[in-house]
């Protein structure tokens, strides 16, 4: 119960930090620029004129959809970390064969999948607003999509094996395989040409960095809180089963 209380406190702090990040992202963070926009007339613009073509005057385009970044990236990074945590517990299970590690690995995988789903939704909305398409088979999106399929397959695998011991062994091995995709997906935009923005490569204005850090810390706290809350639920379920068995005896 103590852990659950800590998780609720973490959840509240995480909620406060992400809310603060939300306000900073809209009120103080500098609006980024992406591509150009062609206008027929000259205007008194805060965004510089970058060229003149037959169609008109080209100004730098304010990139409002970039605001999605402040939550999309923290959710994505949290998903990578929780997936790696799931693989870690999987390895612990394989070395110790203790059931509690199988449960921890499963709950971490479930939490990671929640974060992956949210990354996908926010990502698809960003892609549509920034690139004009809902989806593009570029390296980051493709590897992340494969990672999501592997995580879904993890639960399909679990549900298809009845024997508890075998199920836990296969699931642990599969969690490790799924987690291998996390660093691949993270580093792929740095290794091969990709349309996907690379956040820390191009630098950051302080006004953009602060909301990002707050959102990142807040999101990790929310992730931790969700994991601990789900673990408490599982433990309580086990306690209920034990109490029921005692009643039946």
């Amino acid at each position: 119960m103590r852990q659950l209380k800590i998780a609720v406190v973490m959840l509240l702090i995480g909620g406060l930090l992400t809310t603060a990040a939300f306000f900073l992202a809209f009120y103080t963070a500098e609006v980024q620029r992406f591509g150009t926009v062609t206008l027929s007339e000259e205007i008194d613009s805060a965004y510089p004129l970058v060229g003149v073509s037959n169609e008109g005057l080209q100004y730098e385009r304010p990139w409002f959809s970039q605001k999605i970044f402040y939550f999309h990236v923290p959710v994505a990074e949290a998903s990578f970390l929780v997936l790696i945590l799931s693989a870690f517990f999987g390895v612990r299970f394989l070395t110790t064969r203790r059931k509690e590690y199988d449960t921890k690995s499963r709950i971490a995988m479930e939490t990671a999948l929640t974060f992956v789903a949210l990354t996908m939704i926010t990502g698809v909305l960003w892609t549509k607003a920034s690139w004009g398409v809902w989806w593009d088979w570029e390296p980051r999106l493709t590897t992340y999509f494969i990672m999501m399929l592997l995580m879904v397959a993890y639960f399909v695998l679990r549900n298809s094996i009845e024997d508890e011991e075998r199920r836990a062994v296969y699931a642990a091995a599969f969690a490790v395989i799924a987690a291998i995709d996390a660093p691949i997906s993270f580093f792929i935009t740095r290794l091969i040409p990709s349309q996907h923005p690379v956040v820390f490569k191009s630098g950051f204005a302080t006004s953009n960095l602060l909301p990002f850090i707050l959102a990142q810390v807040g999101m990790l706290m929310i992730g931790y809180a969700i994991y601990v809350m789900r673990m408490s639920e599982e433990r309580m379920r086990e306690r209920l089963e034990v109490a029921k068995e005692a009643l039946e005896d």
Partner: peptide
């Protein structure tokens, strides 16, 4: 771009 930004934050 606003509807996409609002939808992203809302869903989250």
């Amino acid at each position: 771009d606003a509807p996409y930004v609002i939808a992203a934050y809302g869903v989250l």
